[in-house]
């Protein structure tokens, strides 16, 4: 009996030792030499694997960072949108480099074609994806550039940062947005753009991407940009350009002076999170003043709904 016990113990141990030696040799032979810094850098990355940096995951991004640091002694051009400058600072510290402060970005939805502003003219019956509806027709409100309201951006967001607002049928972005750019990619109509978050979340942008002429654009949507060019004239910083009947505010040049907001005849230019101001009494005709009032109200509305949303979310 003891013999059997002894025999099995010895033979099993022998097999174990032999196997471990083989494993060790193989491990030596196929060893992958990796910079230990990669692990350290990966530690400080947010591990969201969102792909916002342009790499498939945080590990790949860490590898790219370390490679670049070793080769070019710089990590310029790399940015982790989720971690922002804080994380990039830490990464730079690990790699012994300095990093420029990058201004935080946020996703901005450039369409205000809510049901109230752009009435529904067609009803769509099919799978709830913008990508398909975009191939099929110009949209329930008739605007061939505007938001389709089926929420492809919401589906791709990994940060719970974008939601459809049932009242307006437009997506709202909240504070959780890390500007990974997934929604920008997902939107078949290129409505969403990454812009500077701005101090105190103050932003000014043209909330329209319609390239049609004024008449047809307004026919579908009350708050469309009609390409009148008033904002271009009034801007003192050359931040606004007009192309294909559409104004665009360059967020790098914009100084948030709000002059363009007050001259926009349709209220297509939005200001967010600015302190309210008294509407100036203008000398122009009544119609214009009325329009302007409408616009201020509209702007306030969006502002307040966004605030509400944020409160609700937080």
């Amino acid at each position: 009996m003891n013999d059997i016990l002894l025999f099995s113990v010895i033979s099993l141990s022998a097999i174990g030792v032999a196997a471990s030696v083989i494993l060790f040799l193989i491990a030596q032979k196929f060893k992958v030499i990796e910079d230990p810094k990669i692990d350290v850098v990966e530690e400080v990355l947010p591990a969201a694997n969102c792909g916002g940096c342009g790499y498939p995951g945080c590990r790949n991004f860490a590898e790219a960072l370390v490679n670049s640091a070793n080769k070019n002694k710089s990590i310029e051009g790399f940015n982790c949108p989720v971690g922002g400058s804080e994380v990039m600072g830490k990464v730079a510290e690990i790699l012994g480099l300095e990093v420029e402060e990058q201004e935080p970005l946020i996703a901005v939805v450039r369409c205000n074609g809510s049901r109230a502003n752009a009435s529904q003219k067609i009803s769509y019956d099919g799978p709830a994806t913008c990508a398909f509806a975009h191939n099929l027709f110009s949209g329930e409100n008739g605007c061939p550039y505007g938001c389709l309201g089926l929420g492809d951006c919401v589906v791709v967001c990994q940060f719970d940062a974008i939601y459809m607002n049932p009242e307006t049928a437009l997506p709202d972005v909240n504070d959780k947005c890390v500007a990974c750019g997934a929604c920008v990619e997902a939107c078949p109509r290129d409505i969403i753009e990454l812009r500077y978050k701005g101090k105190k979340d103050r932003r000014i942008f043209v909330s329209c991407v319609n390239k049609e002429k004024g008449g047809p654009a307004r026919k579908n949507c009350k708050v469309a940009c009609i390409g009148c060019g008033k904002c271009v004239e009034v801007c003192t910083f050359d931040a606004i350009t007009l192309e294909n009947n559409l104004a665009y505010i360059d967020y790098e040049k914009c100084k948030l002076c709000r002059k363009c907001v007050s001259v926009c005849p349709t209220g297509a230019i939005h200001e967010l999170n600015f302190p309210s101001r008294k509407p100036k009494v203008e000398k122009t005709g009544e119609g214009d003043a009325a329009l302007k009032k409408e616009k201020v109200i509209a702007a306030k509305k969006t502002e307040s709904t966004k605030d509400n949303q944020q409160e609700l979310k937080s």
Partner: peptide, 8 residues
């Protein structure tokens, strides 16, 4: 007339 329905 009713609102037209669009589908694939």
């Amino acid at each position: 007339m009713n609102m037209l329905i669009v589908s694939g």
